[in-house]
Amino acid sequence: MTRPGGIATLAEHKRRRIDELTARTSGTGGVSLLRDAGRRLRRNPAAVVGAALILLFLVIAIFAPLVAPHDPVQRFPELTSRLTVDSIPGATAGHPLGSDPLGRDFASRMIYGARQTLFVGVLATLIGLLSGVLLGAVAGAAGGWVDVLIMRITDVMLALPSLLLAITLVALASESTQWTVIVAVAVVNVPVFARLLRGSMLAQRESDHVLAARALGVRGRDIVTRHMLPNSLTAVIVQATLTFAVAILDAAALSFLGLGDPDINRAEWGLMLGVDGVRYLEVRPELAYFPAAAIILVALGFTLLGESMREALDPKNRR
C-alpha cells in the first residue's frame, strides 16, 4: 500500500519528525540573556554609534603615547616665540591643532586629555557603583531601621543638586587633587545605585523564586548573593553606563570651576575648557570648542549605549 519513499509506518514518521525538530532547535542551546541582548544591540544603530564613540575614545586614551605627536607638557620654542597678548598660533607643520596659551602642542593635550577624562569617569563610576550596590543590597535585604537609615541618607543626598553636592565635598577636602574629584563624583552617584538595588531587592524578596530558594533551605546570605544580586545585574549595568556620562560631565564641571587638581601640566578637558578655553575665547575659540566637543561626544556615546542597553535588556522586549 505504501508509495516508494513515502511513510512506511507511523513510528517511522514520528522518528523523522523528532529528528527534524531536534536539528532545528539544537542550535539555540545555551543562548544566554546577555548574548541575546548583544544580538539586539548590534541591530540598533544608536547602540552601534554609541559603542563606536566609546571605543574610539578608549583606543585614543589607551594608546595616547602612540597616537599623540608630542609630549603634552613640553613647551615648543617655535610655538612660544609666536605667542603674543592677542594671538595664539594655529595649525602649523608638526602641530596639527596649533598651540595652547603656553606654547604646548594642543593636539597632544587633547589626546592625553581623553586618558585623564575617561580615567576619572570610570573610577568615579566604579567606586559609586560598588558602594551604592553594597548599601542598597544591605538596605533591601535587611529592612527595618537599617533600611530607613540608609534611605533617609540617600534622600538627603538626592535632595541637593548633584553638582552642588560635589562642590561641597571638594570644598570640605583640605587640598584638591585628582582623587578629591573622583571621590566627590563617586559619592554623588552612590544614592542612585543604592536606590536601584534596594528597589530590586524589595521586589525580589516577595518573588516566587526567592520563596522557592528558601523552601530549599538556602541560607539568607546565599539567597542575597546568589539569587537576588544576579537578577539586579542588568539594571546595574544599564545604570552604570548612563552614570559614566554624568560622571564625566560632573568631573569636567568641577575642573571647569577650578575645583579640580590645580596642576597646570595636567591635560584634562574640563580644565582646558574652563581655564584656557574661556580666557582666550575671543583670541582662539578652538581652545574651547575642542574640549567641549570631546566631552559632549564621550557623554553622548555612553548615553546612547546606556539607553539602548536598557531597551535590549528589558525582559519585556524578549522574543
Partner: peptide, 16 residues
C-alpha cells in the same frame, strides 16, 4: 521536606 510550587516559571530564578 521538599516543596513544589504552583508556577514553575516564576519559581525558577530567571538568570541562573
Amino acid at each position: 521536606i521538599g516543596m513544589i510550587f504552583q508556577d514553575p516559571l516564576s519559581s525558577l530564578n530567571p538568570v541562573i
